[in-house]
Each structure stands twice: as structure tokens, then as C-alpha cells.
Design a protein around this nucleic acid. Sequence first.
DNA 1: CCTATATATTTTAGACTTAAAACAATTTCC
DNA 2: GGAAATTGTTTTAAGTCTAAAATATATAGG
Lengths: 172, 172
Amino acid sequence: MAVSAAAQRDRETALTKDDRLDLRVWFRLLTCATLIERSVRQGLRGEFGITLPRFDLLSQLDRADAGLTMGELSRRLMVTNGNVTGLIDRLVTEGLVARQPAPHDRRAQLVRLTPVGKQAFEAMIPKHQDFIAERFDGLSRAELAELHRLLGKLKTSFEAHESQHEKRKDEK
Amino acid sequence: MAVSAAAQRDRETALTKDDRLDLRVWFRLLTCATLIERSVRQGLRGEFGITLPRFDLLSQLDRADAGLTMGELSRRLMVTNGNVTGLIDRLVTEGLVARQPAPHDRRAQLVRLTPVGKQAFEAMIPKHQDFIAERFDGLSRAELAELHRLLGKLKTSFEAHESQHEKRKDEK
DNA sequence: CCTATATATTTTAGACTTAAAACAATTTCC
DNA sequence: GGAAATTGTTTTAAGTCTAAAATATATAGG
């Protein structure tokens, strides 16, 4: 379907469109994410001896006093179920989180921070926040707000296309 | 060192700074990158049966007719050397790239696309570009340009802090 | 009831990734 | 020229991640 968009912009948009601004934004976004991820990962490793995925997981649990199911964690972190299973396995071994059967549904597991896990995680927060703040200080508050807005719009734009890929279920 | 930045903004900045805009931007950036990566990965897999890391690698090589060394690939993709070694191993097995000894330096390998690899990769480009263009169409050209600019500034801000982490080598 | 479908999670196999150690070749500099 | 430091790559061990298949439980429709 749909003729190649590339083929459609030969004449009238030679200068304004053919520089592939979209590709450059996508590439730069990936670069930034990689750069920041690497920096944060090394920071977490150096300061607390923890990995970024584990930190993200603890962060989600810290905000959910009632605990979260495996599936909910998977959705929030935007990773596969199997990934969460392995991650939680390791955190359980380390004593930072605990699984318990979910009430009303014997399929589900409710995952919670242990007291040790909660204390450990919350001890990391201030330093971690400072770490981020330091590295974002090249942007003014207005620029941060604008960046936040534009990323939100980009997110929406992508999500609009996600639905096309899903099976036609017409789910409710 | 440095007193917690969190502790310093108790009074005068209660409303303007304590909403952690930096953290929210970082979180949203990560979300966007993950979302787009997933989308692109599924697109590449569905259309061409290739993974994103391999596509990125082929993309770098396609732009470098003279070939690239392993180290240069590692730098451009911002991943570890070992990572590139494994990736290239697989692409060599598939016949898409070839290694050859680098002239003037017997430690280095020069990696190039094979004719098959070049043809295969370039056949993917138009569809892939359309795929990206479609998903970025929620942003105007001006917004894309602004997003590009802000991400560039963020990148610079982060890079400024990277140097602090390196060993004090005073290299040249 | 009870079969079909959907949901929640785990398992599996393989790919990707890192950090650190090991190797090999080059460069520096005395 | 030769020891020391540097650079380019691979190896190793462990963790992260995906897609797909397998399990187990729950919900709906007939």
C-alpha cells in the first residue's frame, strides 16, 4: 500500500523535506537515550552497586504500597513478562522484594518491596536525583518544559500507529 | 561532595523547581526511546527479518565505503567492543559483511559490507524511512526542528559531565 | 455444566549487552 | 633497542531482553 513517501517528495520539497529531519530526530533521540542510560547505569553501579533495570523495578514498587502484579510491572516498564519474571527472581534472591499470591486470583502474584528493599531504595533516591539534576542543568526550565511537551507529542504520535499493528480484536 | 541539591530548594523554589521536571523529562525520554525502539524493532523484524542492532551496524557500514574498524564501529554505535565482535560474527556468518586485515596496523580489522549485504541493506531503506516518517507525522516540521535542537543541547549537557568521570589523563 | 476463549505467569532458546580480563600489536621514550 | 604504556580486538561470565510456547486459572456462552 501507499507509494513510497520518499518518491513523493522529489520536486516541491527538495530543500524543506528531503533532509530527513524525522530520521535525524530519531537518531538523536536514540543517541541521547543511550548516552543518558549509560551515564545513569554507571552512576547507579558506582554509587549503589545496582543495575538500571533493577532500580526501575524498585522504583515502580516503591510507589505502589499495595504491591503490583507481574503483568502490571511488565506494562509499566514496557518489557516482556518473561523479562520481569527473571528480574524479580533475582531481586527476590537478594531479599529486596517478595512475591505473594494475589487475593481473588490464583493466577496472579503480588510483588512488594520488603522492608529491607524499601529502605535500600529510598536511601538511593536523593543522590540519584542530584545525579540527574546535575546532568540536565544545561537546559533552562522553559527548555525542559518544551522538551517534555514535544516528547509527549511524539509519544502520542507513535501510540497512534501502534494500534494499527495489533490484531483486529475490537476489544470493547 | 556537594550538599544534596534536593535539600537546597526547600523555600524559594517550592513551586517552580520541586516538581522534578528534569526527572520527568528523563523518564519520558526513556519511554519514548523504548516505545520507538520497540516499534522499529518489530517493523524491521516483520518486514525484513532483521534485528535493530544488525540494521544499525549495516547502516554504519553502508555509509563507509572504505570500511570501518571494530573500534570505530564501537564508538559510533556507542556500545562496547565485545558487543560489536559478537554482532559482526553473526553478520559474517550470514554473509552480509566481511572482515579483512587493516593496512598499516596488524591489530585492526577492517569491516565492510559484502555486495550481498549492501544490496540487502539498501533494499530496506525506503520502506524503513517511510515507516519512520509515518510515525513522526504527529509533529510539525518546526516542532521536529525544535526537538532536534533541544536534544542536541541535552546531549551536550550530558557530555560535559562525562569527562568528569574519566580518569585524569589530560590526554593531549 | 463445560467447552471455548481470555488472562496471568513462567519457561525456553537465542540474541544482545556490559564490564572486566586477556591478548596482540603499536607507540613512546629513555 | 627495549621496557612501559597505549591501542585494537577478542574472550569470558553474568545479566538483560525478546518472541514464542507452555501452564494454570478465570470467565463466557451455550
